[in-house]
Design a protein around this nucleic acid. Structure first.
Lengths: 180, 180
DNA sequence: TTACAATTAGAGTTAACATTCCAATTCGGG
DNA sequence: CCCGAATTGGAATGTTAACTCTAATTGTAA
């Protein structure tokens, strides 16, 4: 893959996978369906990806990483900032957010690599939120701060999941109410 | 299906589906895998169920119903009672709880009937929690009570999802902290 | 006990899936 | 403009899924 045409096709494939994953789930994301949506032949797909799994994992990684944008240099963010960033991800890129939720719940079970990735990204998030919370309430013990942060993140996750099931759900209103 | 043997086989099939769904997700729940685990031939399966879908839907319905046990006669429950019942479902029947979460998130997308069922069961839950909350805090408007209840249910859902991803997660401790 | 319906196992069918192969076309550096 | 490499579509392959068929066995009501 060195020519422009190849790179463009690669992007079309990844877009098709993103769409199919978020609209119809992992089961419906077949190579045939991806090729149809990307308007390419199967040969082109396998010219650019080793396997279906590799291509799907690329999108899944992308979704997991998108949950925590700018992992560096946020050392002074407030809890409100962090919640805002989470809201921005969920509301601002609903497609990738759906991929994240679907994979976190459905695929995290099956694929140990995905499960590992999700848990690791969650640990990072807990750390960051905890630091922000301790700056806001220095009187808390680390343990109490951890509990509070875990509850906060679970609530955000629950809101995100609910929004996915019910598109009319006021995710942002509820997320704002979670700011301590 | 009128003989005892048939009924027993039917139960073995439903158990196998419950196990496979909760352990390995919808994709891995194939008729072949179900028959292997239930130690029967494919002929027996199709003697008892019209299709794979019918059998899987039977388990899914069971899981959705289990979230709200005893739908009648809880008119005087407190919020604490209702949260306790939810906790009992999640912690007391982790297998069926996993099925519920997996289907609510992964399958609710694909299958409109499942999505419909999940939303309906959610409405019922909101009603029941709201009534309990209004008994506890009569000064709240219906609107405010709805918002509070939606946030509470989303938090419970988030905790349940998290517990599924991380079996060591202290679901019950966090759920108790949600009692108003 | 007997007769008939229910149950059973597993081989066979069909379709969809991931993947491979290849001949034809397109790309772009020299 | 020319040539080797990249890219392409689509037909071919092998596998696995859901489901059907059938002959043999088992259950039970009378």
């Amino acid at each position: 893959m060195r020519y422009k045409a190849g790179l463009a096709t690669r992007e079309r494939i990844l877009s098709a996978i993103r769409e199919l994953l978020s609209e119809r789930g992992l089961e419906a994301t077949t190579v045939t369906a991806v090729c149809e949506r990307a308007e390419i032949g199967a040969g082109s797909f396998y010219n650019l990806f080793e396997s279906k799994e590799e291509a799907v994992l690329a999108v899944i990684r992308e979704a997991i990483e998108a949950v925590d944008p700018d992992p560096l240099g946020m050392a002074n963010d407030t809890i409100a900032d962090l919640i805002g960033a989470y809201m921005k991800f969920i509301a601002g890129d609903p497609q990738l957010a759906r991929v994240y939720i679907i994979i976190a719940v459905g695929g995290g079970l099956t694929d140990p690599e995905v499960a590992e990735r999700i848990m690791r990204s969650h640990e990072v998030r807990v750390d960051r939120f905890r630091q922000a919370l301790l700056r806001l309430k220095p009187e808390l013990s680390v343990k109490d701060a951890t509990v509070e942060v875990e509850a906060l993140l679970a609530a955000l996750l629950g809101l995100a999941v609910h929004r996915m099931l019910d598109p009319g759900f006021d995710f942002e209103g509820h997320a704002l109410r979670l700011i301590p």
